[in-house]
Measured scan of single mutants.
Amino acid sequence: CHSECLGNCSQPDDPTKCVACRNFYLDGRCVETCPPPYYHFQDWRCVNFSFCQDLHHKCKNSRRQGCHQYVIHNNKCIPECPSGYTMNSSNLLCTPCLGPCPKVCHLLEGEKTIDSVTSAQELRGCTVINGSLIINIRGGNNLAAELEANLGLIEEISGYLKIRRSYALVSLSFFRKLRLIRGETLEIGNYSFYALDNQNLRQLWDWSKHNLTITQGKLFFHYNPKLCLSEIHKMEEVSGTKGRQERNDIALKTNGDQASCENELLKFSYIRTSFDKILLRWEPYWPPDFRDLLGFMLFYKEAPYQNVTEFDGQDACGSNSWTVVDIDPPLRSNDPKSQNHPGWLMRGLKPWTQYAIFVKTLVTFSDERRTYGAKSDIIYVQTDATNPSVPLDPISVSNSSSQIILKWKPPSDPNGNITHYLVFWERQAEDSELFELDYCLKGLKLPSRTWSPPFESEDSQKHNQSEYEDSAGECCSCPKTDSQILKELEESSFRKTFEDYLHNVVFVPRKT
């Protein structure tokens, strides 16, 4: 048989008469490798580009789960590009990614509803959504962080984005990388972005840091009482949809009607710091009717980097990364020049730590249904340095008659930039024990000054392991946590139920 035959053949030295091919099969003959313009397919066939392209389009058009959109890589027609490569849609070739590779997620039936953290986790790592997304989240724990972890990498949506009755959302900033909504599939009414009845939605994105392009379709905003109209108009300008909307697409009466839409800028007039305090004062603000001013709200939190936005980490279910302080308005003076500047002394802060701070007014709604208010920009203030805590785990070892090696770990709280350490030492008198000992005694162990690591005695271990207080009263049991108490109650309830079950099964009433 021919060298490319495997198993047997019907005619000697003829690659077209093989029972099976050793390498690849091409047009009725066995070959060692697939010549151009053919590609290896499933490690035994040679196919042309049209064959591989037909497989790709067949799966793409069917949208069946589990099928493969075949691509070409290293002269092979394979189910998908290997790690580190992405497909070129024009020629199906796998090309190296520039940075992290995109991950295209194809949605069944063309859309997916995100109504819980669990459903959001199914899209973790996706960068391109081939379909439409509907966000409908009523509640949950730590929602802002969970949504950002699972949806934060999405850069492109081919269909539309719909935010509907998501009472738990305060902001859409968890879509931190969303840059493009194509609108290839539109919501009824030709809408590519749809926001309806979101009672706590206050911000779409921080438009000073976020760009969003909507290729096709219109915007729809109705019944978002805490979303200011200025935020919607800003989205029109940034996304390129200005002029597409009709009169009733953006409701003037049901958007922002319960919001404090600040239209003035508060400026800080005085800032002073110490290692654990920050004193702030800002310019006074009074609405047209000074009785509408209820006070100020001061927001602050630790910020290692200057990239904080107002609604980071917030949701309507209680999660809030900001510390909020309510401040009463100052006494009002008739003389504008003698107006008191409101302020606040922030206490209990960490030394040498940068804080993000902003302040906003708290006002009631005027009778004319106009909203007044003022808010400052987010500023960054760093507390002063102070003395560091003591170095940890000092170790001293003498390696000769004239040297001592000293080692330690950095302090747990540096409280500033540590530039150097101060080492103090003092000579001590020799131990009298060394002169009084009889060095001729056998088995004498000389006193040693070398360091030995501390260890816990058996008594201390027994005390720590004991669940009861000892007789001397030195140790006591740790208080039980809520989960331990709940577990004990469940076990007790189970024992009672099981005992009742045994009584009912074992003891049967005697027939009379």
Rank of each mutant, 00 (worst) to 15 (best):
K103W: 13
H106T: 14
H106G: 06
H106S: 11
L107Q: 13
L108F: 11
L108P: 14
E109P: 15
E109V: 15
G110W: 06
K112N: 04
I114A: 02
I114W: 01
T118I: 03
S119E: 08
A120Y: 11
E122D: 05
L123D: 00
L123Y: 07
G125K: 05
C126M: 01
V128L: 12
G131E: 01
S132G: 13
L133A: 04
N136W: 10
I137T: 14
R138Q: 14
G139S: 13
G140K: 11
A144N: 03
E146K: 13
E146S: 02
L147W: 04
E148C: 03
E148P: 13
N150D: 04
N150H: 15
L151I: 04
L151N: 00
L151P: 00
I154G: 00
I154H: 00
I157G: 00
S158Q: 08
Y160V: 12
Y160P: 01
R164H: 05
R165L: 04
R165H: 10
Y167S: 02
Y167I: 14
A168K: 01
S171N: 13
L172A: 05
L172T: 09
F174L: 08
F175I: 08
F175V: 03
F175C: 02
K177H: 13
K177R: 12
R179N: 11
R179S: 09
L180P: 00
L180N: 03
T185Q: 10
L186R: 10
L186S: 12
E187M: 11
E187N: 07
I188F: 03
G189E: 15
Y191M: 11
S192V: 12
F193Y: 05
Y194V: 10
A195V: 06
A195R: 00
L196W: 15
D197R: 07
Q199G: 06
N200S: 06
L201I: 05
Q203G: 15
Q203A: 13
Q203M: 11
L204R: 00
L204F: 10
W205A: 04
W207R: 04
S208N: 05
S208G: 15
K209Q: 11
N211L: 12
L212S: 02
I214V: 11
F220G: 14
F220Q: 13
F220Y: 15
F221R: 00
P225V: 11
K226N: 13
L227R: 00
L229G: 02
H233R: 13
K234A: 08
M235A: 15
E236K: 14
E237P: 08
E237W: 15
V238Y: 04
G240E: 07
G240R: 13
T241E: 13
T241A: 14
G243Q: 15
R244M: 13
R244V: 14
E246N: 15
R247W: 13
N248K: 07
D249H: 01
A251P: 10
A251F: 10
L252T: 07
T254S: 10
N255T: 04
G256S: 07
Q258F: 12
A259M: 08
A259P: 11
C261K: 03
C261G: 05
E262S: 13
E262A: 15
E262L: 04
E262R: 13
L265R: 13
S269A: 06
S269R: 11
I271R: 01
S274C: 05
S274G: 03
L279Y: 15
L280M: 10
L280R: 01
P284A: 02
Y285K: 08
P288V: 09
P288M: 05
P288W: 06
F290C: 00
F296V: 05
F299K: 14
F299L: 11
K301H: 12
K301D: 07
K301N: 13
E302Y: 08
E302L: 05
Y305G: 12
Y305K: 00
N307L: 11
T309Q: 08
F311C: 02
F311H: 10
F311S: 14
D312Q: 02
G313T: 11
D315Q: 12
A316T: 09
G318R: 02
S319Q: 14
W322R: 01
T323W: 15
P329W: 14
L331S: 09
R332K: 05
N334V: 13
D335Y: 15
K337R: 08
S338P: 12
P342V: 06
W344G: 09
L345W: 06
L345D: 12
M346W: 02
M346N: 02
M346H: 02
R347T: 11
G348S: 12
L349I: 06
L349M: 07
K350H: 13
P351M: 05
W352N: 03
A356S: 08
F358R: 12
F358L: 02
V359M: 03
V359W: 01
T361M: 08
T361R: 04
L362A: 12
L362I: 15
L362Y: 14
S366R: 09
R369G: 05
R369C: 09
R370Q: 06
A374D: 03
K375V: 04
D377T: 06
D377L: 01
I379D: 01
Y380R: 10
Q382T: 10
Q382D: 04
T383G: 00
T383F: 00
D384N: 05
D384S: 02
N387G: 15
P388R: 02
S389Y: 09
L392I: 09
D393G: 05
P394K: 07
I395A: 08
I395K: 10
S398R: 05
S401F: 12
S401K: 13
Q403P: 00
Q403L: 10
I405W: 03
K407H: 14
